[in-house]
Design a protein around this nucleic acid. Sequence first.
DNA 1: TAAGGTTACGGCGATCGTAACGATC
DNA 2: GATCGTTACGATCGCCGTAACCTTA
Lengths: 300, 300
Amino acid sequence: MNLSQIELLRVLQENEFSLSRAAEKMHIVQSAVSRQLQLFEAELGSPIYQRQGKKLIGLTALGQRIMAEVAIINMAKNNIQTIAADFIDSNQGVLHIATTHTQAKYFLPKPILRFREKYPGVRIYMVEASPEQLINKLHTRKADIAICTEKVGEDSDLIVNPCYEWHHAVVVPKNHPLSTGDISLKRLASFPILTYSFGFTGRSNIETAFKNTAMELDIILAAADTDVIKTYVRLGMGVGIIAGMAYDPAVDQDLVARDLSHLIPCSKTKIAYLKNNYLPLYTQHFMDELLIAAKELNFH
Amino acid sequence: MNLSQIELLRVLQENEFSLSRAAEKMHIVQSAVSRQLQLFEAELGSPIYQRQGKKLIGLTALGQRIMAEVAIINMAKNNIQTIAADFIDSNQGVLHIATTHTQAKYFLPKPILRFREKYPGVRIYMVEASPEQLINKLHTRKADIAICTEKVGEDSDLIVNPCYEWHHAVVVPKNHPLSTGDISLKRLASFPILTYSFGFTGRSNIETAFKNTAMELDIILAAADTDVIKTYVRLGMGVGIIAGMAYDPAVDQDLVARDLSHLIPCSKTKIAYLKNNYLPLYTQHFMDELLIAAKELNFH
DNA sequence: TAAGGTTACGGCGATCGTAACGATC
DNA sequence: GATCGTTACGATCGCCGTAACCTTA
């Protein structure tokens, strides 16, 4: 048994058990991969992959048990490297942030800017994805931390910390009927709605608000992206329900935003990361920066 | 980085950082060990051992952080092998039991005999040690499970399950004054006492019983071993305080045992094993056997 | 000077790459 | 026949062992 065999199992897991693709990912020829897997299975004395002919189609019962340990080993191996790199120079490294469009555009700019001032040597990679994918990115270590509102919390491999709370707002063009007067669920429901896709940016809370009423929202456009929603609101397609902090008074002068905190429960944006994954010091400082930015947000 | 380097770090840890002894343990020459360590440190970019001249004298701060991950990797590696072996034939293997003399002689014979009937293919290694050493045997994986009464419970790496409860008894030769009449702490304290060493077999509970009295026990002999205590009781040196189940009516006909459950708090014998360590199925069955034997004990 | 660690060098074995072959869709 | 996996074989690179050398108790 050696570490490259362990690594191979991980890569196979992430590539639908394709030997040729695994070989590609590991920058070696496919025959080498084939042999290493044979050697490993021979050493264990029992196959860890189910086969259909020569193709691998899944894990055996043994394989499943082993993959849990494989994940642990790979995690620890990476941790050793990260710990060492962090020890040598804790101001240099890479930070992979996985988040949704709304967070990336309307919450992260300030903390990221501040962070870059303190840590100019840290390269920041930001990857946008759906909340579901975000969790996956953490598990496959394609991201170090995830910032998102939905879909985290059930996973016992994750540590999830609250970041900040916010409310939805309705945005309409100036002179739109909704720009004046009280807003009720009923009045809201009388307009065609543009808001986030399922599973995005507090969408579940919008559902919650209407669940116990007889009314149904007429959602004519659902997008993952606040800017898409705004664009179509500007075109007069209907009223947008977006995250409150996604209304930018400077840029969105042609729109009117009105708070919906009395109608839709508050949404909670969280910071999540893998439990057993070592995070460099600067990553911890980045999370501090997020919390500071969150506090400032709540003051306004 | 490779697994033998990781293994090397573990071996060094267990051999006071001596390269030559580590080489011996790993069945390779010392120069090879020296080189592998150099390569590993070079790969990390920073030393993980403190040195005095050429000798290693301890871990650096980096080294300490890394050793935690090293332990995880070694554990997972061993787990993979154990899981595979267990999968191929769950009736064959090795079982290392670490326990104290009293348990080994007076509690374990019955469950072990039963276990052997079911699993003739499992080799049982029993290692006797002090409770303190038992924990260490678990950590260094020289034992799979430990059965003991003292000194377990604080360790978060261990899973500790209760096994059975028992009381101390006093043993005296026939015709000894204590063989008749009520027994009080005061009366007990008036005789020279022979009992277990500190940290052994419920000794702490004997201390507890006398802590809040002005009296002090005159312990003239302390042994780890019940049989040693009995031997000297037979020679008339004093009265023995031993574990109740360590009195064997068949063999100890020349002695009288009298229960002390009204004087000394009950002792709790536990089964402990390493949290992240995979135990073969038969080991789990062995623990079941222990619990069955424990139940039978409590009926009598 | 013995014991422990490092450095130099030669040899062996593990593992890779090339290439031909086999199977499956 | 294109894709994917296996087998065979030669070449290379890593790692070990021998041995000489260095350092410290």
